[in-house]
Amino acid sequence: MRIAVASGKGGTGKTTMAVNLAAMLQSTGQSTALVDCDVEEPNAHLYLPVQWEQDRDHHVPVPRINASACLGEECSKCIELCRFKALIWMADEVMTFPELCHACGLCMTACPAKCIDEGQRLTGKVRCGFVDQGPAKGLELSSGELRVGEAMAPPLIKEVKGTARDRDIQIWDCPPGTSCPVIAGLHGADAVLLVTEPTPFGLHDLNLAVQLVRRLELPFGVVVNKAGLGDNRVEQYLEKEGIDLLGLIPHGMDAARACASGRLLIELDGYRDAFERIWSRVLPLTKERTS
């Protein structure tokens, strides 16, 4: 079962939700993997003592031109066809801009002289390991780290998801926003848990996230984090839209300080119950999917 945690707005508590849910499930004996799909700013590992077992580079293919076989400027087929302007004619040869390449393979396919093969561009690294102590002991964590300066996160997100082992439960911590990286994160989920906060920014971006998951036809429900802060417009919105409210995580200085220091909320009084209740309401969502 694969549950994605997403939000639209950043900083609403996606990672808090994903890490605590995963730790809670692992601690009750369910074989769980946490997948940190926010490769631009991976944070899940900061809450868990992880023993890394894999740490490797990830690359995407980029064109490599064999200039001696190139038919020359009269051909320029690769340059004409590339939508991403990753190839230009310069100083009597095809010059490539690997940073602009989307790794679609069109230039290679189209070259009549078969003079293009594929080199590599480093996107970042992938890590995989296990929590080796504490309440979440045994929890698997997969995580990616986008190379600073690399623009395209989705290929690395796919790689991180592919690295995670197929445990009974996978929790996917998705990046913020509503564009390509989130879509790469949500792809293949059985259900989505949207985390929001009861503020105007939280509500506005929740509405965007709701439109996205509806468009992707994924079953979903909402958790209101920092409940008690702000106003009740989020709850009014959920009622009007007929969206499941899966639960509330109360706002409090003790919780804010625990999160700030990288501690798990399930170790604070009263919070573990909140995560258990939320999980009990996530399960029916996944059945909605299979039925």
Partner: peptide
């Protein structure tokens, strides 16, 4: 600006 360090942040 946007969050993150990817495409929109770079742009």
């Amino acid at each position: 600006g946007p969050p993150g360090i990817g495409c929109p942040a770079i742009a």
